[in-house]
Design a protein around this nucleic acid. Sequence first.
DNA 1: CCGAATCCTTTTTGATACTG
DNA 2: CAGTATCAAAAAGGATTCGG
Lengths: 109, 109
Amino acid sequence: MERKCDPVFARVDRLISLLNRSKLLHIMMVLNNHAAPMRFTEIKKRVDSSSTTVNRRLIELEQNGLVIRNVVNDAPPMVQYTLTQDASSLAPTIQSMYDWIVEKDIHLQ
Amino acid sequence: MERKCDPVFARVDRLISLLNRSKLLHIMMVLNNHAAPMRFTEIKKRVDSSSTTVNRRLIELEQNGLVIRNVVNDAPPMVQYTLTQDASSLAPTIQSMYDWIVEKDIHLQ
DNA sequence: CCGAATCCTTTTTGATACTG
DNA sequence: CAGTATCAAAAAGGATTCGG
């Protein structure tokens, strides 16, 4: 019934580890709540962070297939970011955390 | 419609941050898949970690109302740990991450 | 058995300055 | 505008040792 060590659990760990990076969840939510693709500076303003941090997160998201980076123009630079469908389909999971916290009135330290 | 900054999101962040602590999710799953309360050393063996790490996680879990610590005996020491109902009710959320990873065949770095 | 204390390493972060 | 480079500080981890 229960396996001694399910290899998928390691992947759940990596998912949580990724989500835990600073501003990453915030970036995903901003992109998710936005109909159109968003530009770098637009995202940066929304999450109120440094370009270093925003850049790091966007790279990680892209490398993991959760965000699509699209260079629209070179000079002046214009780059657009969109969530992939995989990333969007994670929204209900995030929502279930949200619901759990509200329903059980959880306040973590 | 959409609020500028939903305060519950900060709590979602803290949840993810907690889940991300090393071995924490593992400890929760071990406790969840175990009918009876578990002792410290039992948990330690199952997750294969140092007493320092296991201790840290159990303290955090207890402080956040996700685990109940019950001192059964003083000498010799015997302490039992159980998930709270709140913690157990988080299982479907973890499961939905699991399902997402499997269904979308996600392999994060 | 169940931890606490110590100490050192690794990881992550974020500020600042700079570039095409 | 969209990043990169650098670097210092903070956070987290883990091994070891000790104690009631």
